[in-house]
């Protein structure tokens, strides 16, 4: 089962998020990640949902989404012709001995250090999900205290 990315334009109204997410629950589909935000028009929001299902299930969920009155458009984004990004905030244990190491790793990953404490650092990383995965993996030995990923946000490229 491959990961599919659905980009859904919806009416920017209260209750729409629960209608969309409720549809996934009701039809028995798990959402891997979901991100929502306003688009260039304030009355339209874009939801990016990723899920792992077979082609047929994804076809069905697209049709079911299209049936929701508040859903304006459903587009499936292919990885190769879209830009997919995720934001990761991660709080890592960092004392005098490990701090320099972690800062070094952050440099390699082009992550920013957004908070420095006596015993921890908060790092911010933007990029493809795989990059975030790798970053988390590398930091694990230092001790991850907290971690938050936004889920994928994506836009289709112009020439695709």
């Amino acid at each position: 089962m491959n990961r599919h990315i659905l980009s859904i334009l919806v009416e920017n109204q209260s209750g729409v998020l629960s209608k969309v997410s409720g549809l996934f629950t009701r039809r028995g589909y798990n959402i891997d990640s979901l991100s929502v935000g306003e688009t260039e028009s304030p009355d339209i929001s874009r939801m990016t949902i990723t899920l792992r299902r077979g082609e047929q299930d994804v076809e069905q969920i697209k049709k079911q989404l299209n049936k929701l009155i508040d859903v304006i458009k459903v587009i499936e984004l292919k990885k190769e012709d879209s830009v997919c990004r995720e934001l990761l905030l991660i709080k890592v244990k960092a004392d005098i001995k490990t701090r320099a190491d972690i800062i070094g790793i952050s440099g390699i990953f082009k992550a920013s250090i957004v908070d420095v404490g006596k015993e921890s650092l908060i790092l911010e990383l933007t990029g493809a999900s795989e990059k975030a995965d790798a970053f988390i993996e590398i930091l694990k030995p230092y001790g991850i205290l907290e971690c938050h990923r936004t889920g994928i946000t994506a836009l289709k490229r112009e020439n695709s």
Partner: peptide
């Protein structure tokens, strides 16, 4: 009511 009926109405409004 709107939350409760969402899955078996074609559409609903509050």
């Amino acid at each position: 009511t709107v939350g409760t009926t969402a899955s078996f109405t074609k559409h609903n409004y509050l």
